[in-house]
Nucleic acid binder design. Structure first.
Length: 611
DNA sequence: CTAGGGTTAG
C-alpha cells in the first residue's frame, strides 16, 4: 500500500533535481518506518478518577448550570469547588464566561481567594484585557491577598500577548528589584518568550544565562522558546548551538516541540535532508510525531508545491490514528491555491464540514487569498460575502487579503470602502495593512495619496520600517517623482534606518529610469562598501539600466561579475540583449558570456533560441 | 489532603 503511494510521489518528482528527490523520499521513508504512536492513556485515566465533578465538566453549558446550582446553595460550597469550576471553563478557553462567573461570585460575596483571583487574572490577560488583570491585582492587595508567581506570570504573559514588551520588561524588573517575588522558571520563560517575540534573541539568550546564574535552572520550555524563535528568524545554526548545549551540556532531554521547531526551521530553509535526519533522530530517541509535527510536514510540502507529498503525509496520519485537524486542512488549501488548483482547494474547504471541522477565519482567508492570486475576482467577492453572512468573523488578515486583491485588480474605490468598513468594525489596521495600501496606491499610480498616507503615519513604528520606505521610494520613482524618492532615501538614514538590498535596487532602478546611469553605477558600488552586497536583482536592475540607456562600456564587466557570483539574467535582460545582438552591438565573446548567464527556464521558452 | 502559570502550526 505504502509502496504504491511512494511510487505516485516518485512520478511527481521526475524532472526535478535528484537531490531534492532523494531528500523527499528519505523524508517520507523515515515517516513510514517510524513506530506507530498509540500512546497509553493509563495514567490519564487514573487521574480522571480522582478528579472532582467540577474539574470534569464536559462543556460550557454544564459548567454554567453547575455554577447556578452552586450559587443557590447556602452555605456556599467550598471555594475550592468554585475555583475548580472556573478553571474548567478557563481550560475550555471560555475566558469571558470565566470572568463573568468571577464577577458573579464577587457580587454574591462568595469568599474568593488567591486561587480564584489567579484564574480571573489569567482570563482577563488572555482576553487582551491585561489592565483589568492589574485591577484585580489591586483588589488582591486590598483584600490582603499576597499575589504569587502564578499571578505575576499571568500578568506578564498578558502584557506580552498585547505586545507591550517594554512594560513587560519594566514589570519583570520591578518584581525583582522590589523583591515582590523571585522569578521562577515559568516567569523567566514567559519573559524570554516576550523578548523573542520582538526579535530580541540576543537579550533572550542573555536572560537565559542570567536565570542560570541566579540559580533558576532553565528547562526544555525555556530552550524551546529561544530555539523556535531562532528557527523562525532563519538562524538555524544558532538554534542548533542552543539545542546541543541543552542536550549535551545541560542534559535536558528535548521533547516533541523542540524537534518540531527545528524541523520546521530546516524545512523553511529548504534543507530537506537535514529535516529528514532530525525526524529520524527524533524517532530514534523515542519521540513520536504528534499532530503538530505532521502539520509542519504537510505545510512544508504544500509550500513547496508538493501537494501529493502533503496528501501522503495526511494518509500516514490517518493510518496512525492521528486525526488531521483544521491546521492540516488549511495547509492543504494553501497548497492547492499556490498551484492554482482552486477547485481542489474549494473541495477541501467544502469537505471540512463533513469532517466536523468548521472552516475558521484562516481557512476562509487562505481560500480568499488563493482566489485573488489567481484573479478569480467573482469567487473572492462571493466567498467574502458568504463569510460575512454565516462564516467566521473576518479579521485583519482577511481584510488585508481583500485589500490586496482589490488593489491588484485596480479597484481602489472598493478597497477604500473596505478599509473604512474594517475600521468601522473596530479592527485595527496593522503594519501589513498599511504596506498593502501603500503598495496598492503606488501600483495604481496614486502616489499623492500614498505619500499623504505615509506622512499621516507620522513617526510611528509603521513608517520607520525599511519595507515601507522601499515601497514608497519605488512608488514615487515609478510615478515619475524621483526627487521625492531621493528625498525619502535621505530621510530614512536621518531616522537611523539602514537601507537594505531592496532599497538600493529600487534607487538604482530609479536613477536608471531618470537616465542617471553614472549615479546608479556609483550607488551600486557604494552599497557593497556599506556592507550590503548586491543580489541578483540589483545586478539585473543595473544591467537593464545600462542597456536601456545604451551605456555599453560597463556591460561586459558587469556580466563577468554576475558569472563570478553565480547570478543569472531575467527575461527582460535576455530580451534586450537579444535585440542588441541582432543589432550587432556585441561581439562574439560577449555572446558566449551571456549564454552562461541564461537560466535553464528561459532556454526552454519558445522565444529564446540562444545556444 | 483535594485547585492555579510558560513552548511548536495564517
Amino acid at each position: 500500500m505504502m509502496m504504491i503511494r511512494s511510487n505516485s510521489a516518485l512520478k511527481s518528482f521526475i524532472g526535478k533535481t535528484p537531490l531534492l528527490y532523494s531528500a523527499h523520499t528519505t523524508f517520507l521513508a523515515s515517516l513510514i518506518h517510524s513506530n506507530s504512536s498509540f500512546s497509553s492513556n493509563a495514567s490519564a485515566d487514573f487521574q480522571q478518577h480522582s478528579k472532582s465533578k467540577y474539574q470534569k465538566v464536559a462543556n460550557l453549558n454544564d459548567a454554567l448550570n453547575l455554577f447556578d446550582q452552586m450559587s443557590q446553595q447556602r452555605p456556599f460550597p467550598s471555594i475550592i469547588y468554585f475555583t475548580q469550576l472556573l478553571h474548567s471553563v478557563t481550560k475550555m478557553k471560555h475566558y469571558s464566561h470565566s470572568v463573568d462567573l468571577f464577577k458573579q461570585m464577587c457580587a454574591l460575596r462568595v469568599p474568593v481567594d488567591k486561587f480564584t483571583m489567579s484564574v480571573a487574572i489569567k482570563c482577563c490577560c488572555q482576553l487582551y484585557r491585561t489592565n483589568d488583570g492589574f485591577a484585580i491585582l489591586g483588589y488582591c492587595f486590598r483584600r490582603c491577598i499576597v499575589p504569587d508567581d502564578f499571578i505575576f506570570s499571568a500578568l506578564l504573559d498578558g502584557l506580552i500577548l498585547e505586545d507591550r514588551i517594554l512594560e513587560a520588561e519594566i514589570f519583570f524588573k520591578k518584581l525583582i528589584k522590589d523583591k515582590l517575588c523571585e522569578p521562577d522558571v515559568v516567569m523567566y520563560s514567559t519573559m524570554i518568550k516576550g523578548l523573542c517575540k520582538v526579535g530580541n534573541n540576543v537579550i533572550a539568550i542573555q536572560l537565559l544565562r542570567l536565570m542560570d546564574e541566579r540559580g533558576c535552572k532553565p528547562d526544555v520550555v525555556v530552550y524551546n522558546n529561544i530555539i523556535d524563535s531562532l528557527c523562525k528568524d532563519q538562524m538555524i545554526d544558532d538554534a542548533f548551538k542552543l539545542f546541543k548545549e541543552m542536550v549535551f551540556q545541560k542534559r535536558i532531554p528535548p521533547n516533541v516541540i523542540t524537534y518540531s521547531s527545528l524541523i520546521d526551521g530546516l524545512c523553511n530553509l529548504g534543507r530537506w535532508e537535514d529535516a529528514s535526519k532530525m525526524l529520524q533522530e527524533m524517532l530514534d530517541v523515542g519521540i513520536s510525531l504528534d499532530v503538530h509535527t505532521y502539520n509542519i510536514l504537510v505545510d512544508a510540502f504544500c509550500k513547496e508545491g508538493k501537494i501529493e507529498e502533503a496528501e501522503n503525509v495526511v494518509d500516514i496520519m490517518l493510518e496512525r490514528g492521528i486525526v488531521p485537524d483544521i491546521v492540516t486542512y488549511n495547509s492543504l488549501i494553501d497548497g492547492y491555491c499556490l498551484r492554482g488548483e482552486l477547485a481542489k482547494a474549494k473541495a477541501i474547504f467544502d469537505s471540512m464540514v463533513f469532517r466536523n471541522i468548521g472552516p475558521n477565519v484562516v481557512t476562509y482567508s487562505s481560500l480568499l487569498n488563493g482566489y485573488w492570486k489567481n484573479s478569480k475576482i467573482d469567487e473572492a467577492m462571493l466567498l467574502f460575502h458568504k463569510m460575512n453572512e454565516k462564516g467566521p468573523k473576518p479579521d485583519v488578515i482577511t481584510y488585508n487579503t481583500m485589500l490586496w486583491g482589490l488593489f491588484r485588480v485596480g479597484n481602489c474605490g472598493a478597497a477604500r470602502k473596505l478599509f473604512d468598513e474594517m475600521r468601522a468594525k473596530g479592527l485595527k489596521p496593522n503594519e501589513c495593512t498599511y504596506r498593502v495600501i501603500l503598495e496598492g496606491l503606488c501600483n495604481n499610480h496614486l502616489i499623492e495619496e500614498a505619500l499623504s498616507l505615509f506622512h499621516l503615519m507620522g513617526d510611528s513604528k509603521l513608517n520607520s520600517c525599511i519595507i515601507v520606505y522601499n515601497i514608497v521610494i519605488d512608488g514615487a520613482s515609478i510615478c515619475g517623482k524621483f526627487d521625492i524618492a531621493k528625498a525619502l532615501f535621505q530621510d530614512l538614514t536621518n531616522k537611523g534606518l539602514h537601507p537594505n538590498v531592496r532599497t538600493y535596487s529600487v534607487m538604482i532602478s530609479g536613477l536608471c529610469r531618470e537616465g542617471l546611469v553614472g549615479d546608479a553605477k556609483e550607488l551600486f558600488y557604494k552599497m557593497e562598501e556599506s556592507g550590503c552586497a548586491p543580489d541578483n536583482v540589483s545586478y539585473r536592475v543595473l544591467l537593464q539600466g545600462y542597456l536601456k540607456n545604451k551605456h555599453y562600456v560597463d556591460v561586459e564587466m558587469l556580466l563577468h561579475e554576475m558569472v563570478g557570483r553565480g547570478y543569472s539574467l531575467d527575461a527582460t535582460n535576455v530580451s534586450i540583449l537579444l535585440d542588441q545582438i541582432a543589432a550587432g552591438s556585441f561581439d562574439n565573446t560577449l555572446i558566449e558570456l551571456i549564454g552562461k548567464l541564461v537560466p535553464k527556464e528561459l532556454m526552454d521558452g519558445p522565444n529564446f533560441s540562444l545556444k
